[in-house]
């Protein structure tokens, strides 16, 4: 198995993903570098979200390895993997805010669990994180009382609560109107630029991909492996795989 690249933040080596013994993607090899916005793209049902679930440890690879900062993440023993997970912030496609908690409590929970900060300091950080995503004043709202776009932003605030090294975002623009989606893209760019976090995004929204991605990985459902990897503009014009060009040009 090839070694992880020395300066890569996340390295994926010979990854095979499977559901019930059936492979859905095989032989994935790629690196994600620090502070880049890395997009995982592909058609519906190609395994983008599954790949994300592997990267964040929710699913175990059928074979292959995932390395974080050069350390094997996928085969790490439970407690070590838990410690590594603390470097991650995850925003789920549905937001996945804890519905019995207010927005402030949602953001505060990771802080209460993993820091020794006092209640007043946690409160300050919570207000700051919610303000970062434009939700100042909504601290005491429950997830059921706010809109879809606000849920996504609150989920982003919770993902950023512990100042993670890597932010994973699953379809951030899905179900949002174009303007809200664009605002979320801008927010992601600002967060990366100001906080210096590595951002991994799963999406198939072309506008978002062109607007924010440094590099994009195309998962090819026809060959069940990586179709292409590179800056999206380059892939659109020069990708060897015709399906990648079709996807990025919205051609049939």
């Amino acid at each position: 198995m090839p070694m992880p690249t020395a300066n890569a933040h996340i390295s994926v080596r010979d990854l095979t993903m499977a559901y019930d013994g059936r492979a859905i993607m095989e032989g994935l090899n790629f690196d994600i570098f620090r502070k880049e916005i890395f997009v995982i793209m592909g058609g519906s049902g190609c395994g983008k979200s599954t790949l994300l679930r592997h990267l964040i440890g929710l699913q175990q690879p059928a074979s292959g390895e995932i390395h974080l900062n050069g350390k094997n993440f996928s085969d790490a023993p439970g407690r070590m993997q838990e410690a590594m997970l603390r470097h991650f912030g995850v925003m789920f496609q549905s937001g996945a805010l804890w519905s019995s908690l207010t927005l402030a409590e949602n953001v505060a929970l990771p802080l209460r669990e993993y820091t020794r900060l006092g209640a007043a300091e946690i409160n300050e950080i919570v207000r700051y994180k919610l303000a970062l995503v434009g939700l100042a004043g909504f601290e005491d709202y429950y997830p059921a009382q706010i809109s879809g776009g606000m849920i996504k932003r609150a989920s982003l605030a919770r993902a950023m609560a512990l100042d993670p090294q890597v932010l994973f975002l699953d379809e951030p623009g899905a179900g949002l109107d174009p303007v809200t989606s664009r605002l979320l893209d801008d927010l992601i760019l600002q967060i990366r630029d100001s906080l210096g976090e590595t951002v991994v995004i799963v999406t198939h929204e072309l506008e978002s991909i062109y607007a924010i991605a440094d590099r994009a990985l195309f998962l090819d459902v026809a060959t069940r492996t990586a179709g292409a990897l590179g800056p999206p503009g380059e892939l659109r014009d020069h990708a060897g795989n015709p399906r990648v060009r079709q996807f990025l040009r919205r051609q049939i």
């Binding site: 929710l58 993997q81 995850v90 789920f92 519905s99 990771p110 993993y114």
Partner: peptide, 11 residues
């Protein structure tokens, strides 16, 4: 709603 998964990824 993936709230359980959200706990898991927080360790």
């Amino acid at each position: 709603t993936e709230e359980v998964a959200a706990f898991r990824v927080l360790g």
